[in-house]
C-alpha cells in the first residue's frame, strides 16, 4: 500500500519546483519585479501619490520640478507627477501584454500543433506562411499596420497580435515534430484515440513548459516593441499615460529636464528586465530550449 496519492504527488512536485526556483536568485528577483509591477498596476489608484495627474491635468506653476520627496520622479511639462503617470503607464503596458499574448499564443500554438502533427501540405502551408512573416521586422510591420488602421492603443495591440503568433508556431512545430514519434503518442494511436485527443490531450500538455517559458520571455519583448510604437506616436494617445509616449515627450526637454524621459525609460527597462530574469529562471528550471 503506497502512501502517496496523485494529489500529494503533485503537491510534492510543486514544492520541489519552488525549492529549485528559490535557489536561483536572478529568477526570484525577476519574479519579485514582475509581481511588483502587477500589484502596482492593479492598485494604481491607491498606490499613485497623485492619481488625479493621470489625465489632462495641468498645473503650470509646478511644471518641470526636479525629483523631490513630493515628486520622486519629478514633474513633466504640464506639472504632472511623473511617478503617478508611470504607475498608471504600467496598466497600459500590461494590458498590451495580456491582449497580444492572449490572442497570439493560442493561435500560434494551434497552428504549430497542426503543422507539427499532420505534416504534408498542412505543414508546408503553415510553415511557409510563418517564413513570410519572419521576413519583416516586427516593429516596421506593426508601424505599417497601426498606421493603416489609425494610431490607437487598440490598433497597435491588434497589429502586434497579428505579428506575434508565428514565433509560437515555429517553436511548437519543432517541439511537436520531435514528440510525435514518442511511444505514448504511438500508444494512443494504437488505442484508437482521435486526432483531437492526441493533439490536445497528449501533445499539448507536453508543450506547456516550452509555451510558458516562451510566453514569459515574450512579455518583455511585447513591452519593448509596444514602447517603440508609442515612442513613435503610434500607441496610446496623450493624455493617457503611456511609458513610451512619456519618454518621447520628455525627450523634447533634454537635457535640462532629463527626469521627464529618464524615469519612464527606466520604468520600461525595469519591467522587461523582470520578465527576462523570470523567463530565464523558468527556462533553467524546466530545462527547455526556446530559441
Amino acid at each position: 500500500m503506497s502512501l502517496t496519492t496523485p494529489r500529494a504527488d503533485r503537491l510534492r512536485a510543486v514544492r520541489r519546483a519552488w525549492y529549485r526556483f528559490r535557489r536561483n536568485p536572478a529568477a526570484v528577483v525577476g519574479l519579485a519585479m514582475v509581481l511588483l509591477v502587477f500589484v502596482v498596476a492593479i492598485f494604481a489608484p491607491l498606490v499613485a501619490p497623485f492619481p488625479e495627474h493621470v489625465g489632462g491635468f495641468v498645473d503650470f506653476r509646478n511644471r518641470h520640478q526636479p525629483p523631490s520627496w513630493t515628486h520622486p520622479f519629478g514633474t513633466d511639462n504640464a506639472g504632472r507627477d511623473i511617478l503617478s503617470r508611470v504607475i498608471f503607464g504600467y496598466r497600459i503596458s500590461l494590458t498590451l501584454v495580456v491582449f497580444v499574448l492572449g490572442l497570439a499564443v493560442p493561435f500560434g500554438v494551434l497552428l504549430g500543433l497542426l503543422a507539427g502533427y499532420y505534416g504534408g501540405w498542412v505543414e508546408t502551408v503553415i510553415m511557409r506562411l510563418t517564413d513570410v512573416f519572419l521576413a519583416i521586422p516586427a516593429l516596421v510591420m506593426a508601424l505599417a499596420i497601426t498606421a493603416a488602421l489609425s494610431p490607437t492603443l487598440l490598433n497597435s495591440m491588434i497589429a502586434l497580435a497579428l505579428l506575434w503568433w508565428n514565433w509560437h508556431t515555429r517553436l511548437i512545430y519543432t517541439t511537436v515534430a520531435s514528440l510525435k514519434h514518442e511511444e505514448y503518442v504511438e500508444a494512443a494511436k494504437v488505442a484508437g484515440a482521435s486526432d483531437f485527443h492526441i493533439l490536445f490531450r497528449e501533445l499539448l500538455p507536453n508543450c506547456v513548459s516550452v509555451i510558458s517559458v516562451k510566453t514569459t520571455l515574450d512579455a518583455g519583448f511585447v513591452i519593448l516593441i509596444g514602447a517603440g510604437l508609442s515612442f513613435l506616436g503610434l500607441g496610446a494617445q496623450p493624455p493617457t499615460p503611456d511609458l513610451g509616449t512619456m519618454v518621447s515627450s520628455g525627450a523634447n526637454y533634454l537635457p535640462e529636464y532629463w527626469w521627464g524621459s529618464i524615469f519612464p525609460g527606466l520604468a520600461i527597462l525595469f519591467t522587461i528586465l523582470g520578465f527576462n530574469l523570470l523567463g530565464d529562471g523558468l527556462r533553467d528550471l524546466l530545462d527547455v530550449e526556446v530559441n
Partner: peptide, 20 residues
Amino acid sequence: GVVTPSFFIALLLQLLAGYV
C-alpha cells in the same frame, strides 16, 4: 542590451556624450 529599448539607449547616449 536585450532589456533596454534601443531608443532609450539612444537618449542616454545623447544625454551623456552629447550634452554632459
